[in-house]
Design a protein around this nucleic acid. Structure first.
Length: 781
DNA sequence: AGCGCGCTCCTTTTT
DNA sequence: GGAGCGCGCT
């Protein structure tokens, strides 16, 4: 396995010398600078503002990506920095990919090994290098949401906490919010509010009856045992390393002369801290963003980061890109007027040299079925006029809305593609196969092991699994270790023991093979020998052949990577298989998913109170939530180059019942002179009420029910703390010396005859001599 | 241990 | 309308 870091370590010696030695170019540059020519004056200024902190406020469609990529190329071409001295951070993989391609074109060459990627990918790269400093080893597993939820569920169950009352989702949410804000378990308490009257912090502390901090600690403890981390940890661990090991940070300071950040408005506190620490070196930090497109507050993004930039980085140069090259006049005017209703802004005024174009069209439909039908017809009509389908998109608020359009387009035979739907790597068979590979790569990966230990059926049912899990958690050991031990004791039925041992031995063998044969061959071998492939071959359900095809596709995808670890990393961080975007199809996606994209014609259905603005966003975050919804509307509108069509349905099916709706307040915020069609009459009583009497149609059950956070906690024994203590106890020498009397949960009373690590041999009064796990016996006085 | 049935809850957005 | 869960049956 080649060290992915060697390639750029060569450069880390800083061939240009210290900061003082930086090249000072003459003007005009003695280089071929044709790439600067097409820029407008402001863009050019942004490209050339290289030293010190810079905030580039880039409105929608103002050529942000172009400026960013040109600026990076400029740094390299003018030899101010080598490729490995620039840190270029994006938020999404899509953006990272685009930047890679465009910079590659500008400088004419590959960009492999450059520090250009998403926050998470770059942080993962750093963490792999210094994993030991936070108690992980370099081959740690990156868990996905599914793994995280299962882990939390196990911890809740182990602590006797009612999973119904405290859904793992919610607990995970609390933990992630802490992580987003750079808060480690030792600092997570009920009272770490930022002030400002927000209740989130108090709520987080009170969640799970005040046990959330303990659960957070237990969760982190367990992750360490499993040699795993989650997305938030990638940043959080690196932050910890930077703070505790100044030498490591200093190394990165020396390395990165220039830092560029895209979508700065979407950064969370922990990303902000990460950047701030890294930028302390040369202070050449350029953040690009648009506060009007901050739409990830629900995920911990702090719009405050961008609003506060000048205060954070004194002397910062602020450059506003305001000339829009994407949309026509009416669309821009409508979007500008809408976003003008927000208060949390730095303020930009977009303008365009393009013509007025077509007014934004508003259409009210009878119900959501009709809405889908109407949109379908409009698309066909546009198509007849010569508009390609790939230039049209339906942008929805929630993923659930896509269904109705899919149904309708299917009937029409209208080619479409749903973007951001179930992803390739989330399919069951892919995740199963990946679980095998994960265990090979990293034996402590319990979450993967659990997934496939009984797939295909090996007689290892939930009971056996629960047993393994319990011992593992109690003793702070990964399951495979426990499983090995239990193949030598009598707790499990001989048949089960046999089959478990077989699997474990297979894994040993595969792990050994992994060193000798190409990973794709290994993968095929594993799926065949484990019986996984056969399982689907023998499955007669209609989906089975498709699943086998997917597995083949997985093998193909693997071939693109150097080794297994590289492939696993890609899947964990990218998740997305390359979606063919070349063919002529209408895109259906959420507005979130559409950020950064543009289409000639954009349909924006479902502008109804409760759905959009979304009731939950309002309930949870009040005015701030409303503003974020409005920014989302702004993002949606500004995706359109030539035509934006907004619609609302008067009735919509929610779950299985039809509910009456009221038009979205955002429709009222579109200025009449830029809109045509049946925009709703100005405010009727009721639906503007902030208590959301109108929104109730989207409230599920009792919308006024108190938040679970508000409910007083029912006293229970402090099991989490106890469980943490048990880990300590378990690491002490065996408390049952030979000759002591013990009681076993299954075999009853007996006398210890031998001790071997954590396994005991016991002569039971009624069951004879058995080997058992120490965890299952208790002392008898 | 494994399967099938009926019940509940839910859907905001994703690296 | 459907996923996930618990329960009870085989």
């Amino acid at each position: 396995m080649s060290d992915p870091f060697t390639s750029d370590d060569y450069w880390s010696d800083d061939p240009l010398g210290g900061p003082e030695a930086a090249y000072v170019p003459a003007d005009p540059y003695p280089f071929d600078t044709r790439y600067l020519e097409g820029l407008n004056p402001v863009q050019r200024r942004a490209v050339e503002a290289l030293e010190g902190p810079v905030l580039l406020l880039a409105g929608a469609g103002t050529g942000k990506t172009r400026v960013l990529t040109t600026r990076l190329a400029h740094l390299l071409i003018t030899k101010r920095a080598t490729p490995f001295q620039v840190l270029a951070v994006t938020f999404t993989n899509k953006a990272a990919q685009e930047m890679r391609e465009r910079v590659g074109e500008l400088v004419g060459g590959g960009v492999e090994g450059w520090w250009l990627g998403t926050f998470h990918a770059l942080a993962a790269r750093m963490l792999r290098k210094h994993a030991e400093l936070v108690g992980l080893s370099g081959n740690f597993t990156i868990l996905d949401t599914d793994d995280q939820l299962r882990l939390i569920k196990q911890l809740l169950e182990a602590a006797n906490i009612d999973v119904k009352k405290w859904p793992p989702r919610q607990v995970l949410g609390v933990i992630e919010r802490w992580k987003d804000r750079g808060i480690t378990p030792d600092r997570a308490t009920g009272r770490n509010g930022r002030g400002g009257g927000r209740e989130r912090d108090g709520e987080a502390g009170e969640a799970v009856g005040g046990k959330a901090p303990a659960l957070y600690a237990a969760y982190q403890e367990r992750l360490k045992t499993l040699n795993a981390c989650d997305f938030g940890d990638l940043l959080l661990h690196v932050l910890t390393i930077f703070q505790k090991h100044p030498d490591v940070l200093a190394d990165y300071h020396r390395r990165f002369r220039y830092i560029m950040v895209d979508e700065y408005q979407d950064t969370n506190v922990s990303q902000y801290l990460w950047l701030r620490l890294l930028a302390q070196g040369h202070r050449n930090l350029c953040c690009v963003g648009d506060e009007d497109q901050s739409i990830y507050g629900w995920r911990g993004a702090e719009i405050g980061n961008i609003l506060r930039f000048e205060a954070d980085f004194p002397g910062a140069e602020i450059i506003k890109l305001e000339e829009n090259y994407r949309s026509t006049g009416h669309i821009l005017a409508a979007a500008t007027s809408l976003i003008g209703h927000n208060r949390s802004r730095l303020g930009k005024t977009l303008w365009t040299a393009a013509g007025e174009g077509i007014k934004v069209r508003v259409s009210t439909l009878w119900d959501s079925v009709e809405e889908a039908r109407w949109v379908g017809e409009e698309i066909e009509a546009a198509q007849r006029k010569g508009a390609p389908l790939r230039e049209m998109a339906v942008l929805v608020r929630t993923g659930a809305q896509t269904r109705e359009f899919e149904d309708r387009f299917m009937t029409l035979g209208l080619p479409y593609r749903v973007i951001g739907g179930p992803r390739f790597y989330e399919r069951q068979e892919i995740r199963d196969a990946m679980a095998y590979f994960r265990v090979i790569n990293q034996p402590a990966d319990d979450l993967a092991f659990e997934r496939i230990v009984n797939l295909p059926k090996r007689g290892v049912g939930p009971a056996a699994l629960a047993l393994l899990g319990q011992v593992g958690r109690d003793r702070g050991l990964p399951m495979t270790t426990v499983a090995w031990a239990m193949t030598e004791t009598d707790e499990l039925k001989p048949k089960l023991r046999q089959s478990l041992r077989g699997l474990l031995q297979n894994f040993e063998r595969w792990r050994d093979m992994a060193k000798r044969i190409p990973h794709v061959d290994l993968a095929r071998m594993v799926l065949d020998e484990s019986g996984y492939t056969r399982m689907w071959q023998e499955d007669k359900t209609p989906e089975a052949p498709g699943r086998l095809d997917n597995l083949k596709e997985l093998m193909n995808a693997m071939g693109d990577f150097e080794n297994l670890q590289g492939f696993l990393e890609h899947v964990a961080l990218v998740m997305e298989a390359n979606q063919g975007s070349g063919d002529d199809k209408v895109s259906i996606m959420t507005m979130h998913g559409a950020k950064g994209l543009e289409f000639d014609i954009v349909f924006l259905p479902g502008w109804e109170e409760g759905l959009f603005p979304n009731k939950r966003a309002l309930d949870e975050n009040g005015q701030a939530g409303l503003e974020e919804e409005r920014r989302l509307a702004y993002v949606g509108l500004t995706r359109a180059k030539r035509q934006a069509i907004v619609c609302s349905a008067q009735r919509r099916r929610v779950y299985s019942t039809w509910l009456d709706t009221l038009p979205s307040r955002f429709l009222m915020e579109l200025p009449a002179e830029h809109v045509e069609g049946d925009a709703p009459a100005p405010a009727k009583a009721g639906y503007l009420a902030d208590d959301g009497s109108a929104g109730r149609s989207y409230g599920f059950r009792e919308s006024s029910a108190p938040s679970p956070f508000a409910r007083p906690y029912q006293p229970r024994p402090a099991v989490v703390e106890a469980s943490a203590r048990r880990i300590e106890v378990a690491r002490r020498p065996c408390p049952y010396p030979v000759g002591s009397r013990v009681f076993h949960q299954k075999f009853g009373g007996g006398t210890v005859t031998a001790v071997e690590g954590d396994k005991l041999e016991i002569d039971f009064d009624h069951a004879g001599v058995k080997k058992v796990m120490e965890s299952f016996v208790s002392a008898v006085k």
